[in-house]
Design a protein around this nucleic acid. Structure first.
Lengths: 222, 222
DNA sequence: GAATGTGAACTCCTTCACAGCA
DNA sequence: TGCTGTGAAGGAGTTCACATTC
């Protein structure tokens, strides 16, 4: 009858900040601190303390009034809320420059995210050894997903192949996709997506830089 | 007296979508189309047509009622609004795996973004040749920024060095920073920042995947 | 006294509904 | 008739203000 402990109905904006809080907690713990106020933690996370408290309140999290949060306990709560208690095997599709860099990038390995499969639709690349893994053909994807319990797929293909890669990942049973390809993917609703796009980020920065420059010019009276 | 043509007071959310629209326009143009409706373009961009129209309205853009948008003209308007008519020389700080990958990554080169300087504070790396560039010492940053007109800096250092890198970029006169380091940077207000963080993206996906799984379990009645 | 947790106010963004124009 | 442009409505996210608890 009673619903699950929690995790449900957490605002999307809050979810994107939980990993940031978790990292801030790690930083704090590294300094040997075992108790933090929302004020201190918020500074490390780069948000306001009220934002932090409101976000944590969605987890039903309990700090202690007048005291603050227990670092260990809050770390455990966030880890569990984010589902980082388990391993998350990852498959990377597209073994060009970007795919290779991602396969080598250590950042992936932290906290349960292990790259366990590398795929490419180009048969000239299939069989090539990259780090500890061998590039496999797309046809083997469904089997790999089943055998290795892959839930997350990373798309590192050119834009033109991205939808194909996405379709393959989805029909193989992957639950979530991180794409680096600069195109809108069409996906069933049940599959979660996040998109990282360097070109877009640079474009936005160009806009802001140009804009601030104009604003500065206007600001100084003629 | 009259303010600048436009570009001012464009909502942040709109700005982040303008690059997406520009890409959608390129895709459409590649298909040989010279006129699009907001409906068609919105599909390519992955947004609703009303969103697209509202966004474009902030640019003071003019489609033709009953007809649609002229692809060439709208492309020109967005290009100009984003400041992509000029070159944007880029400096990358931090020549580890990620920095090297970024230096090699072609995606940077598109539309005026050219990597013109590679820096690292580790003197063992300084002098090393990467692609067409030689890694230079941090001390040379201010000179490079001035001589090469660098406005955008990319931080590809480990988290621990990111603030140092940011400080160096800011005092050298860079106007905007794209950081890959998973820490909150403290920067003067005039400097624009965007942050790309793979670990965070994976964490969010883990949350969503786990969450949807729970939802599915709950959804099927016991 | 100190810091959390949270309803209420506010701001920002998205979507709707439709007027206006080719 | 078809599609844009936009005021108004609705929804989401953030911040405020303060009651609450240790």
């Amino acid at each position: 009858m009673t619903p699950l402990p929690s995790h449900r109905d957490i605002p999307a904006a809050t979810v994107t900040r939980l990993p940031v809080y978790l990292r801030a907690l790690h930083a704090v713990a590294t300094r040997g601190v075992t108790r933090v106020s929302s004020e201190e933690l918020a500074i490390d996370a780069g948000v306001r303390s009220t934002q932090l408290r409101k976000d944590l309140s969605h987890l039903g999290s309990h700090g202690v009034r007048g005291v603050g949060y227990d670092v260990g306990r809050l770390t455990a709560e966030l880890t569990s809320a984010l589902g980082l208690n388990r391993a998350w095997p990852v498959a990377i599709v597209g073994m060009g420059n970007l795919g290779r860099a991602l396969a080598a990038y250590g950042g992936f390995a932290t906290e349960g995210f292990h790259v366990v499969a590398l795929l490419d639709r180009d048969h000239a690349i299939v069989g090539e050894r990259i780090g500890e893994l061998t590039v496999t053909a797309m046809s083997r994807l469904p089997g790999l997903v089943r055998e290795l319990g892959i839930a997350i797929g990373v798309i590192a293909t050119p834009a033109a192949s991205a939808q194909l890669a996405a379709d393959a990942l989805v029909s193989a049973g992957v639950e979530a996709i991180l794409t680096f390809a600069p195109v809108a993917l069409t996906l069933p609703e049940r599959v979660s997506t996040r998109s990282v796009d360097l070109a877009t980020e640079l474009h936005v920065l160009a806009f802001l830089a140009q804009h601030d420059r104009l604003a500065a010019d206007v600001g100084s009276p003629g």
